[in-house]
Amino acid sequence: MASPELELKNLLQAERQQGYFTAAYVESGKLDQAQPALQYFTGPDARIFDLASLTKALVTGPLVHITLKAENLDVKAPLAAWAPRDISLPASLLQLTTDEVLGHVSGLPAWWNFWMRHLDERQKPTRADALGLMEKVLNRIPFGSEKKDLYSDVGYILLGYLLEKKAKKSLKPWLSEAVSEPFGYAPDLNLPKESYIPTGFCKIRERELRGEVHDENCAAFGGISGHAGLFGSGPSVSQYLKALLRDSMGVQYFEANDKVRRDTQREGLLGFRRGNGVSAALFANGNSMGHLGFTGTAFWLEWSSKKYGIFLSNRVISGRVSPRITDIRRKVFQLLDASLGP
């Protein structure tokens, strides 16, 4: 019988040859161990992925927790309790509690168009322009009274907006100061274009995206927001998760998310997502938490054992929507779990 590592290599190579993605990275290990148990990359020389919504779990979530701790508040505090005063948002929006927005149970819509007539690539917007656009659109977004479990990009755009306005600095340098992290946002990386793995042709921008965020809303904000914009290599994701484990705030962040995972049935936690859905039910017996990214990225970890698995790809290179990613992710994380043993 083939080893999990060999099966993974064969699976990823086969999918790459069929054109489903041009690059993929997998890793498994334990957060409290320096070296991974398994690490494999297939693709060109480029190594930097568009991590997409992993931004929510790796940037926005930790920064919200840092902010709450600095204000001596808990996650049930309304947004108004820590929001800056120099903003103009509806009072009803600011009365949402922080845990409702972090956990995707706020009543905010899943998505809203921020980029229409604002995705002008001739001139990159200033941060003031980007934050102004966020505020303008957030002021007219409807949200319902039913606070059901609904994954919401809008909620994390709101959180990113509040964080930047409060700190008076962009999310990337603030995170660098708060936690030692080995990756960043594409606009701040300043790497040659060839370092980035492409994510396909954008009909709106009329070019192949390489080192440019795939998400249109994030692009309209200049490439940085609370819901997307993070870029990094595969090893940088695991290095960052391990850096969180060495940081007292990071440990609190892990523990807060795992408590919600154990105490509730909701899919959204407090920055992380529950890992027992159709995409990762076979990793750590469904006891994991982590996040998915639209471009073809994912990570899951089990807090009690410190087991983790990472799968990064540019699956959007073969089409914006493909149900195949769910089946591929399940196979990948099953094999990553098997590579770690019982």
Results as ranks from 00 to 15, higher is better:
residue 62 P to V: 09
residue 46 A to V: 10
residue 16 R to I: 02
residue 69 K to I: 13
residue 335 L to H: 09
residue 314 N to W: 00
residue 207 R to Y: 00
residue 33 Q to Y: 06
residue 187 P to F: 06
residue 208 E to G: 12
residue 244 L to T: 00
residue 168 K to V: 09
residue 84 P to R: 11
residue 48 I to L: 15
residue 216 E to K: 14
residue 145 S to C: 05
residue 22 T to F: 04
residue 264 T to Y: 09
residue 16 R to F: 03
residue 152 S to Q: 01
residue 87 I to F: 12
residue 293 G to H: 06
residue 73 L to E: 07
residue 195 S to P: 07
residue 16 R to E: 03
residue 166 K to Q: 12
residue 316 V to R: 15
residue 224 I to Y: 07
residue 102 L to D: 05
residue 140 R to E: 15
residue 108 L to W: 07
residue 225 S to K: 07
residue 327 D to M: 06
residue 318 S to K: 09
residue 313 S to Q: 02
residue 281 A to R: 10
residue 176 S to W: 13
residue 136 K to D: 09
residue 160 G to H: 09
residue 71 E to I: 02
residue 70 A to P: 02
residue 74 D to K: 12
residue 20 Y to M: 09
residue 91 A to N: 11
residue 130 A to Y: 06
residue 130 A to V: 02
residue 105 V to W: 00
residue 301 L to C: 04
residue 51 L to Y: 03
residue 68 L to D: 13
residue 180 S to C: 04
residue 201 F to E: 03
residue 130 A to Q: 08
residue 90 P to M: 14
residue 139 N to Y: 06
residue 264 T to S: 15
residue 39 Q to D: 11
residue 5 E to M: 12
residue 330 R to T: 00
residue 201 F to D: 04
residue 92 S to G: 14
residue 218 C to L: 07
residue 186 A to F: 02
residue 269 L to Q: 04
residue 129 D to S: 11
residue 307 K to W: 00
residue 52 A to Y: 01
residue 236 S to I: 05
residue 332 V to M: 04
residue 67 T to W: 08
residue 155 G to H: 04
residue 216 E to G: 09
residue 319 G to C: 12
residue 225 S to E: 08
residue 146 E to V: 12
residue 210 R to S: 13
residue 235 P to K: 03
residue 78 P to L: 13
residue 262 R to T: 06
residue 134 M to A: 14
residue 262 R to W: 04
residue 5 E to Y: 12
residue 338 A to E: 15
residue 93 L to D: 07
residue 191 L to H: 10
residue 29 G to I: 11
residue 123 Q to V: 13
residue 202 C to L: 07
residue 173 P to K: 05
residue 128 A to S: 14
residue 211 G to C: 11
residue 81 A to F: 06
residue 185 Y to I: 05
residue 200 G to K: 05
residue 20 Y to N: 10
residue 313 S to N: 01
residue 227 H to A: 14
residue 246 R to N: 15
residue 108 L to P: 03
residue 247 D to R: 05
residue 304 S to L: 13
residue 154 V to Y: 12
residue 11 L to S: 06
residue 133 L to R: 15
residue 71 E to W: 08
residue 296 G to R: 05
residue 223 G to I: 05
residue 229 G to M: 07
residue 21 F to P: 04
residue 53 S to H: 07
residue 125 P to S: 14
residue 261 R to Y: 15
residue 191 L to F: 11
residue 267 E to A: 02
residue 18 Q to D: 13
residue 135 E to N: 10
residue 197 I to M: 07
residue 71 E to C: 13
residue 210 R to P: 12
residue 37 A to I: 14
residue 341 G to M: 02
residue 268 G to D: 01
residue 260 V to C: 08
residue 105 V to C: 08
residue 83 A to T: 11
residue 139 N to I: 02
